[in-house]
Computed example of a mutant assay.
Amino acid sequence: MRVISVPHAFNEEELFVDLRPSLDCPLFLKCEGFNFAGSVKLKAATEMVEAAEQDGTLTPGSVLVESSSGNLGVALSVIAASKGYRFICVTDPRCNLATRLMMEALGSTVHVITDRHVPGGFLAARLAYVQELCEADDRCVWLSQYTNPGNWKAHYRSTAPAIARGFPALDVLFVGAGTTGTLMGCARYFRHWHRPVKIIAVDSAGSVTFGGAPGRRMLPGLGMSVPPPLLDRSLVDEAVIVEEPDSIRTCRSLARRGFLFGGSTGTVVSGAKDWLARHQEPGLTAVAIAPDLGERYLDTVYQANWVQALYGDDAGPQRPGRGPGRPDLLTDP
């Protein structure tokens, strides 16, 4: 029996899903959503908050402020509620309604930026507003997930070692790229491990992280409209770019097998499947990190009208090869 007194004291670290029966793909999925924040971001949030408390930046009476597309905002809301801090999350219209409601239920203030900056898009506008808040009130403390080393250290200390324990023969690790905190923490850990591990970053089309042209991105989580300061490209062996309709198809395909994951997870699994299909090496051990669960995406990724309005037929029925007896996505009940 495990008893806790604060929500961030619990995170299920050892759960993996074998995707071979579901997707006919030689891939194990590390599930990071089983905690009170529902995503991998609870680790980074805890690391950054506790480091700020230890160095005296964050004190009683401080007001936490952060820019987030959703998951980190929920994680900081959980911690702020537990520790008695006020928290202001600055987000944009892509943040799921369920995510915004969850932050507000936890007592946080959510400010939605509606005008995007060019260049830099919504992210640049969010960051500008956060800076305005900090300049206007010296109680405000901005943890800055985009530059804070605690973002990657959390995964160097927890996520990567858990994968190493579970898969001592690991060959390839697939990690989604947002702020690149998870990616950099795992990459740094495995760079010095006892055997070589190929690090494959998975990014969204329309993200500029790996040199792509900026474009529309409607799924929150992965991708950046400005280069992520935490990224060290020398630690990444390859980057796979995934179109959002492919992310949605993968999410819905997994849901048809009973696994309800979030949009970021759909992107990572889609990218991993594509890479593995092009590198069919016998005996390869591959793991991907699933950042989140799917309940917050019920009115977007899993809502046919939303998908149809944004992507049309591009995110429609799954492409040939879905297997006998499998339903067509979006069209079958």
Rank of each mutant, 00 (worst) to 15 (best):
R2D: 01
I4K: 04
S5E: 05
V6I: 00
A9R: 14
N11T: 14
F16A: 02
D18R: 09
R20Q: 13
R20E: 12
P21C: 14
S22A: 15
L29M: 12
F34C: 11
V40W: 02
L42M: 15
S62D: 03
S62I: 06
N71D: 08
A80E: 03
K83I: 12
L106N: 09
H111M: 11
V130Q: 08
C134P: 00
R139M: 05
R139Y: 04
T147R: 15
P149A: 09
P149T: 13
R157A: 15
G166L: 02
G166I: 00
T180D: 11
G185E: 08
C186E: 01
F190R: 08
W193I: 07
R195S: 13
A201E: 00
V202M: 08
A205W: 01
G206K: 08
A213G: 02
P214T: 12
R217D: 03
V226Q: 14
D232L: 10
E238F: 05
V240Y: 05
C251W: 05
R252T: 01
R252A: 05
G266Q: 06
V268Q: 07
W275E: 02
R278Y: 00
R278L: 07
H279D: 02
E281A: 09
A286P: 11
A288D: 03
P291R: 10
D299E: 10
W306G: 08
V307C: 04
L310Q: 13
R319P: 07
G321H: 09
R322K: 12
T331G: 00
